[in-house]
């Protein structure tokens, strides 16, 4: 028991790693915040585009979404960070991470948004257009507000998964929480920083998990 406390809950080691971990926290928060925003935006964009049903565009979007969803995020990240430089595109670790997370996350979000949009009966679109609203107005005012409510469970679940995936950026030397924790661990020869980082993530993500459960329960009871 004492061994556990000394190696995993050692406040001295934690204090010494403070600076490293704070850098990590800042990097991770920036990474997560930007990635979720961009991924959602990109996903929404793809979904709305798909719904507009331009015949030549749909196969492209479908192909993109299917291929990207079948590719693990870390593989995508490796491609961006290690392969692109060979043709002259050299992205810093942070932006490589953002790109990988947004491209991958966006594909998943687009499927979720698409499901929500398609769940709204055609009649809604027809009524709105009959009133004279443009396509964008119809989307913004009539369709999307209704769709969002339906898709809250998978939306939160996917956001949860995206945030969890952001830790892969540590593998391309981005000084995020995980990387900093591992650095701190070799410095202090103590596993407390790693435990602290795990707990930090739990602090952010456990509420999200409860939110998912809450939304799923709500759908189950109303359906």
């Amino acid at each position: 028991m004492n061994q556990i406390i000394e190696n995993f809950f050692n406040f001295e080691a934690l204090a010494r790693s403070q600076k490293l971990l704070l850098i990590g926290l800042e990097t991770t928060l920036r990474l997560i915040g930007l990635a979720v925003l961009l991924a959602m935006g990109f996903g929404l964009f793809l979904a709305v585009l798909r719904h507009a049903n331009r015949r030549w565009l749909n196969p492209l979007i479908i192909a993109y979404v299917d291929v990207v969803r079948a590719c693990p995020i870390i593989v995508l990240l490796m491609l961006i960070y290690y392969a692109l430089p060979f043709i002259g595109i050299r992205l810093p670790a942070f932006w490589a991470g953002i790109l990988a997370l947004s491209l991958n996350g966006g594909a998943f979000y687009s499927e979720i948004f698409r499901g929500g949009i398609e769940a709204i009966p055609r009649g809604q679109t027809e009524a709105a257009r009959s009133l004279g609203l443009t396509y964008m107005q119809t989307m913004r005012i009539v369709i999307l507000p209704q769709a969002i409510r339906i898709i809250l469970p998978p939306l939160t679940t996917n956001t949860l998964e995206l945030i969890k995936a952001s830790a892969v950026a540590s593998t391309v030397a981005l000084p995020d929480l995980l990387r900093q924790a591992l650095q701190a661990q070799s410095l202090t020869l103590n596993a407390t920083p790693l435990v602290a980082v795990l707990m930090l993530y739990l602090l952010i993500l456990l509420p999200l998990v409860q939110l998912v459960t809450f939304f799923e329960r709500r759908v189950k009871n109303s359906g």
Binding site: L160, K164, A165, S166, A167, S170, L194, Y201, L205, L208
Partner: peptide
Amino acid sequence: LLRASPYLV
């Protein structure tokens, strides 16, 4: 706890 833990961490 497991649902809230990032895989790599």
